[in-house]
Design a protein around this nucleic acid. Structure first.
Lengths: 348, 348
DNA sequence: CTTTAGCACTCCGGGGGGCAGAGTGCTAAA
DNA sequence: TTTAGCACTCTGCCCCCCGGAGTGCTAAAG
């Protein structure tokens, strides 16, 4: 059943108002804001809306509060898709001028920026490929007991570390090792890497094997870490400013959930760049009476990252959605610039 | 003026009790715990202790609460230096089995571990050298428009990144560049690096200069970032469990301070590994009614890192101090293992 | 001189009761 | 169908009261 235009208007006013005041909104206030009709009329309409499940009444003789169903309608149809003001776009771009080399740190930086921009807690994740692979290895000798391992992974990410070797190596051994690494340990899953390591075990001298396995296990570790979608959260303290989280226990519970949850935070659908989850629409119990807005951005090399915002159900969906999209676009652009053109990448 | 033995005993009981209950402690409770004397006697002593400034009374007819001065005496003399139980040592070592390559991430990991171990918020910092310098450069060509820059810095830290070059380069150019970098841009401050860059400007072909400056500016950036003592905090939510921070505003204030403060958190004296700052002893206003316990650990290459714990003045100093020292020792050991022996390092 | 018991006093915190304000539902009239 | 009017309801807040915990003081005992 469709709502009349006026009912929708009223619902919109209720949501708009409640979003900002966090207090049940009464018929008089609505009438004042709509003009043309009296509060009594509004009251009749309100009664209907409650009946239909779009609004709720904390108790008789209090104003109305939107129900999840009401928010849903609001988000789907009523909400005025906000455009970012020039000023805001400017600010977003500015805060994305982060000179960060490492992806992870860039994310936590961006997370903080988003959080302070929307005034809600955020979480970010670089959705790594399910399985990262090494593209290329290099070894840079430092002395006869240590060398720098450089590994290039999918998506042109580079990792390197000084490795203290378990035994002395002649300088001329390094090129051989590098060759072996590049020919046998690139472009395969970490699982396969371990298997191949076993396979070559009896084909090369034991010392060489020792070194090789040290390097390979470093590589495997790094790859798995990079592939593992780590979620970093920021700005959890913003919660404390909201009336619904003035209760320390509640705030603590949600904060702990955010800090601990590694996998179970909402992600957007594959086909749409923005997803809004309202209250009970969330699967995690801890989020049952909060809302989540989550956007995704492209990292190139068909990887996607995501930014999410967690807030009360009366979150300012329009603003948050607009700003979040702004950031997501900014990040997509940022990565587009950093990455090599994909053509170059495939030609090997 | 020295306190009598009994006064000290009483003070100790008051602090011990208050630390755990967060409620003013009364004469009866003290008498019960001490035995031998009646509550009336205790009351006389308490009055003296208030007079002398070691205790405070929230209001007439409430129990007593330790004053900062009281805590100070407690920490200096009364507190039983706790030994870590085997179990605890075990746990600390376990949580330090972090397989992290990057210093920064290791720190935030360790910070989280400490926080969950002492149940207070923590902050950590790797006190980088005031000015990091590059020790060695390598360039690994990827194609004619990009290469991997590898830079080794003080303390055997290695950074690398894929750099998209502003113009095409012949393969044979790279060795020349590397030479130039290693001969002119290592072991000098970033300031000097920029100056040298200017100096060579007219001695090499313009294209080469363009590349060089791109690489050098990446290096400068990385060095400055690595040298900058970044402070990372963890476990701020622990605050919410404490009765003194059930007030959302207070908690929010302190959390914001922790999140924002980059430089003004307490550091231990150079000569001692552990420092305890009680309430007003803190210089930052935001910490005036909290206490801080901070420990330092060695990273080798005469760099030091620090771990701090922030809590209410009635923090459990004995336990926190013991556990924090345990972590600091663990970290010192951890880095000792990772670093190369310093001898090797200086021989170049 | 110190310790103890006794006692009056103070103050906090929690549990009613009352009251104003905001908002509703209903009815009757436009 | 809309509106005005009115009685009704419920919350939040203030105030008051009261019990409990703890103190300070005094006077007696060791």
């Amino acid at each position: 059943m469709e709502l009349t235009e006026r009912k929708k208007q009223i619902l919109k006013v209720v949501v708009d108002d409640y979003i900002h005041t966090a207090e049940p909104v009464g018929s008089k206030a609505i009438a004042a804001r709509m003009g043309g009709v009296s509060s009594a009329t509004i009251r009749n309409e309100l009664a209907d809306l409650v009946e239909l499940g779009y609004l709720e009444q904390p108790h008789t003789s209090a104003g109305r509060v939107p129900s999840p169903k009401g928010y849903r309608l609001y988000v789907n149809e009523l909400m005025e898709r906000q455009k970012l003001s020039l000023d805001e776009t400017e600010k977003i771009n500015q805060s994305l001028q982060l000179k960060m080399e490492e992806l992870d740190r860039l994310l936590s930086q961006a997370g903080r920026a988003v959080s302070s921009f929307v005034n809600y807690p955020t979480y970010m994740a670089a959705a790594g490929k399910k399985s990262m692979t090494a593209q290329r290895f290099e070894l840079l000798p430092v002395d006869d007991r240590s060398c720098i391992v450089v590994m290039m992974m999918d998506g042109n990410r580079v990792k390197s570390q000084l490795l203290r070797l378990q035994l002395k190596v002649e300088m001329d051994q390094f090129p051989i090792l590098v060759n072996l690494l590049n020919s046998h340990f690139t472009k395969i899953s970490t699982k396969e890497m371990n298997m191949r390591l076993m396979n070559v075990a009896d084909q090369i001298p034991p010392q060489a094997f020792l070194l090789l396995s040290q390097i390979v296990s470093y590589a495997v570790e790094s790859l798995e870490e990079a592939g593992h979608r780590e979620i970093v959260t920021a700005g959890a303290r913003e919660l404390l400013k909201l009336p619904e989280f003035r209760d320390a226990d509640k705030a603590h519970e949600l904060m702990s959930f955010l800090a601990d949850s590694k996998e179970n935070l909402p992600v957007p659908e594959d086909d749409s760049p923005l997803k809004i989850l309202i209250g009970p629409e969330n699967v995690s119990d801890a989020l049952k009476d909060t809302s989540v807005v989550v956007a995704s951005y492209d990292i190139g090399d068909d990887m996607r990252g995501l930014i999410g915002v967690v807030g009360p159900t009366r979150m300012d969906y329009a603003t948050v959605a607009a700003r979040l999209s702004g950031f997501a676009d900014g990040l997509t652009r940022l990565f587009g610039k950093q990455e090599l053109p994909p053509k170059e990448d495939t030609k090997e």
